[in-house]
Every structure is written in structure tokens, then in C-alpha cells.
Design a protein around this nucleic acid. Structure first.
Lengths: 217, 217
DNA sequence: TTTTTAATACCGCACGACGGTATGTATTAA
DNA sequence: TTAATACATACCGTCGTGCGGTATTAAAAA
């Protein structure tokens, strides 16, 4: 393939193909050659010019996956006129009402059979989402009196673990009903922490989302 | 190596070596050749006679890891003279006071850098521990009135996920203090579900355990 | 402007290691 | 004597990766 004046387009192409293949076949069962074959004439050398290893491609793919979500989290975290508790509530509300047509759902992913990708999400959740996004919000909530806890960072971890992993439809291919039941238990857990973040409107929206997702596959 | 009249001993040797290597280097960075080299004269053919794939070895290793724990869970589950809530409490008490000198801790494992093994534990937790052990106990608790919930299987999942994954020192290499703080949040979560399963004696024992574990490495 | 230079986008082959298999052989129990 | 089985040996195809080379570009020098 001819040299591209804008190499980031090539990088993007590689990531597109890699993402799709990782989702379809899993990371381990996707070879570099598979990615090449889905790229239209690009060579192995090209890939290893832009990425230093296959693992490096996985990292880039995961980054791109969580980018949008992290941007949303950052926006809410940095919003000036919400209490800590309100921010938490906003997060769950938004994560429920996110557009369904985005590429993640379109790929009909199956992280439940994808150890490496699941591991990436898991790591991202613990090492980034919890300390960088949820924790500051909880700290604020403690200051403004809307959240009470003696262990903010552990609370942040447990909450986001439940939300990002256990309730993630990409990981658990739950039925519509099961998703709903999980959410009910999640709500009770949050209430147990004194956090009333799930209202009935959100539950309605959730049913809807689960239904759409299951029609897609 | 000469033919062994008791082939299960050979199988056990293979699993011993594989387990140690998986812990030390991770599943993916352990090659079949590595296992062979740690076996004293056993050949590749021998391994592939007893296991049909490397993946198959991983499954066997994980099974052996969770075997003891599952036996304990089964014992408690099938115990006749405890209420559901008491059984839950017994589980957490026992899992805290388990002997520290067992092989798992001796290997100073690092599941946090071991995607495949982490995935195995994760899967085992969701697909076996939750439905086969915790769920029946919760169901019993509902019947005998010591546990109240509309969503028993989801409650089982969330509880065991927090306990087996989030609070697993093999996965999270937490400091002694952090482990304790997690347990406090876990306790609060359980209380939020109306489950008072963590008493002060358990917390004391926990501090002790965390301390021993960290001296080992 | 033209020429030179240095960087870089990409090619493609070759390598060593890997997981896995086919086949052979010796030992055992029936 | 036979059939099954516990191994050994030799080999295969594929994989991730390194590397020498080439063409294209933008910046520096003329």
C-alpha cells in the first residue's frame, strides 16, 4: 500500500480492524495476519511500525473503547454545580441512556469469552475509573455532606466494579430480565450505602435498553 | 521416563509444575516446553497423552485450586442444623481463618498479572460458586426467614463476586490496611442487604491474616 | 528555488519459538 | 496372545517479531 501522508489514519484503520476481530474471535484467536488480511494491502511491517507488539494494539483498542466513557465521567466529575451524590446519580443515569447504536454494541461483543479484553476492562476499572473519576466525586460528597463513608476509595472500587463489570452487558450476556434484576440488587446495595441513586425512571429506561440490545444480536 | 504404573501420579506431577509456573510467570508466558523442563525427563507426548491442550491443563489447575474451597462450601451448604444466614456467616468466617501455609500462598501468586488465570477464577465464581453454593444457602435463608430478598441468584452473584474477586489477596495485592478497609466496606454492603455476617472477632482475625500474607513475599 | 538530508511510512522475508500431531515403542492387565 | 495405555520422538504449520531495504515526505541548506 502506498505511503499515507496522514499516518494516524493508518493507525485508525489498524485499530478498527483489530477491534472488530478481537470482538468477533477474541484477542488470542486473532493473529496479526488476520488483522493484515482485513486491512487491504497493508503489510506486517507496517503494523509493527505503528505498534510495538500485538499487546500494544490491545492496549490501544481498550483505550479507544473507554475513551468516550471516561470523557463522560470527567465531565460529570468536573461539573461545578452538582453535589457528590447528584454526580453519582448523573453517572448512572447517563450510562443507562447512552446511545445504543455505537460501535461497541454494533460489534455484538462477547467479552465473556475474551480473557484478555475482559482483563483490560477489569484493570481499567480498578486502576483508572475508580481512583480518577469515582473517588473524587465521593470525596466531594463527603465534604458537601451528601455521602457518608469512612472508606471512600474502597467504596469507589466496589461500586464501579459492580457497575462496570457485573452489570456490563458486554461481559455478561444476560437476558433482559436478568439485567433488570441485577440493577435492582445494585440499587439495594447503593441504598445500603446511603446512596439513593436509582429512580424509577432509570429502571424503565433500563428495561428498554436491555430489550434493544437483545434484538441486535 | 519409565512408564508409571499409576498414571494419576504423572498427571499430578504435571499439574504441580504447571501450577507453579502459571503462578510465577503467568499462563501465557509459560510454554509447554517450560512445563516439560520442570518435570524431570517427561516428554511432550506424555503431556499431550494426559491433557488434550494447554488450555486443558489450565482448567485442571484451576479445578484443583478451587477444589478445597468448593468442598468447604459444599459442607456448609449441606449442613443440617444452621439457618441460611448462619451458613453465610460460617463461610466468611472459615474463608478468613483458612490455613495460610497452603500451596496457594506459598507460591506467592500474582493473578493481577495473569489474565487467563484471573479469567478462570472469575468464571468459576460466576458459573459455579454463586449458583451451586451461595444460591442454595440464600434460598434456604428465605425459607427459614433469616434472609430477605426478591432476587436470590443476583444477590448470590454480587456477594461472591465481591468476596472471591475484589477481596481476593491473590488478585489484589493490597496492603494489610487496604484489605481491612475493603472488609469494612464489604461488611457495610452486607448489612445493607440485611445480612449481619461480619463480627468483630472476624475483623481481628483478618488483620492477622493480611499481616502474615505480606510477610511471606 | 533547488538541492540535500534526515526522518518516517511501509514492504516482505526470515527466524526462532510455540502449540499441537502422527507415529512408534515399551509396558501392563486381561 | 491381545488390546489398551503410558510414554518417547520427530515433525508440522503458524505465530509474533526483528530487520534490511525502499519510497516518500518535510525540513534544512544551498
Amino acid at each position: 500500500m502506498a505511503r499515507n501522508k496522514h499516518p494516524e489514519e493508518t493507525v485508525s484503520l489498524i485499530l478498527d480492524a483489530a477491534f472488530r476481530l478481537f470482538m468477533e474471535k477474541g484477542y488470542e484467536r486473532t493473529s496479526i495476519q488476520d488483522i493484515i488480511d482485513n486491512l487491504g494491502g497493508l503489510s506486517k511491517g507496517a503494523i509493527y511500525h505503528h505498534f510495538k507488539s500485538k499487546e500494544d494494539i490491545l492496549v490501544a483498542v481498550t483505550d479507544r473503547m473507554t475513551e468516550e466513557s471516561n470523557r463522560m465521567l470527567a465531565d460529570i466529575r468536573d461539573c461545578a454545580d452538582l453535589t457528590g451524590l447528584e454526580k453519582l446519580k448523573t453517572i448512572f443515569k447517563k450510562s443507562i441512556s447512552r446511545p445504543v447504536q455505537d460501535e461497541i454494541f454494533a460489534a455484538a461483543p462477547n467479552l465473556g469469552n475474551n480473557p484478555r479484553l475482559l482483563y483490560s476492562i477489569f484493570k481499567e476499572t480498578i486502576e483508572t475509573a475508580a481512583p480518577d473519576y469515582i473517588l473524587p466525586i465521593i470525596r466531594q460528597g463527603i465534604l458537601d455532606g451528601t455521602i457518608q463513608t469512612d472508606y471512600p476509595s474502597e467504596l469507589a472500587e466496589l461500586i464501579i466494579l459492580a457497575a462496570n463489570i457485573w452489570m456490563n452487558p458486554m461481559i455478561f450476556d444476560d437476558s433482559e430480565e436478568k439485567t433488570f434484576r441485577k440493577f435492582m440488587v445494585f440499587r439495594q446495595m447503593m441504598q445500603g450505602f446511603g446512596l439513593d441513586v436509582v429512580d424509577d425512571e432509570m429502571l424503565d429506561r433500563l428495561k428498554e435498553l436491555a430489550s434493544i440490545y437483545h434484538k441486535n444480536k
